[in-house]
């Protein structure tokens, strides 16, 4: 089985955009813990910006002692890291139009779209992604299309580490296992 992790492409995760206070501390902790679970040098499926975030997370995991990176661990203490793997890190997120102060302002369709996308992720069934609607709602789902095409996810394996939209963008951090099609 191949380990798969989904993280959002939030640029606020990058140290080059860091402030004195971390506006995404919980998200960061969840991402680092999930990426650690993938093991060293995961394959990355992402756009250009998402790849930057993925590279940062993978590098940070290899640099930080697990004790530090797991300091905000919420749900996954029992999942041991593996030293290296054929794990795959997907970078994607839901709509950026979920609130009036969201980057793309409020779109009334955003909630339903994200609810459907969440359900599809949990079911391991991404076959019916509406890519046109995703573009309209500023949802970054390109890598999820590939996930649906290339990996047969075991729904029972899906674990949600983070599910929130603190700044009007739907973020998920999920772990799952599956087989290459």
């Amino acid at each position: 089985m191949t380990r798969v992790v989904l993280v959002p492409g939030a640029l606020a995760l990058l140290p080059s955009y860091g402030g004195l206070e971390d506006p995404v501390a919980d998200l960061r902790a969840a991402c680092l813990d999930a990426v650690r679970w993938l093991g060293a040098d995961p394959r990355v499926v992402a756009g250009a910006q998402g790849a930057t975030v993925a590279t940062y997370l993978a590098t940070e995991v290899s640099r930080l002692p697990s004790r530090l990176a797991s300091s905000h661990l919420r749900t996954s203490a029992s999942l041991a890291p593996q030293p290296s793997s054929d794990g795959v890190l997907f970078v994607a997120n839901g709509s950026a139009k979920r609130t009036e102060k969201a980057p793309g302002h409020l779109d009334d369709r955003a909630m339903a779209f994200d609810d459907a996308l969440r359900a599809a992720l949990l079911a391991g069934d991404l076959g019916d992604l509406d890519e046109e609607l995703a573009r309209e709602l500023w949802a970054d789902v390109d890598s999820l299309v590939r996930l649906g095409q290339e990996i047969d996810v075991d729904p029972a394996s899906v674990q949600v580490d983070y599910d929130d939209d603190p700044y009007g963008v739907q973020y998920w951090v999920m772990r799952m296992e599956g087989r290459w099609r």
Binding site: A10, L11, L20, A96, Y167
Partner: peptide
């Protein structure tokens, strides 16, 4: 010489 206190605008 100092980071912003807290930056999220455009970085979500």
């Amino acid at each position: 010489r100092r980071p912003p206190q807290r930056a999220i605008r455009g970085l979500q």
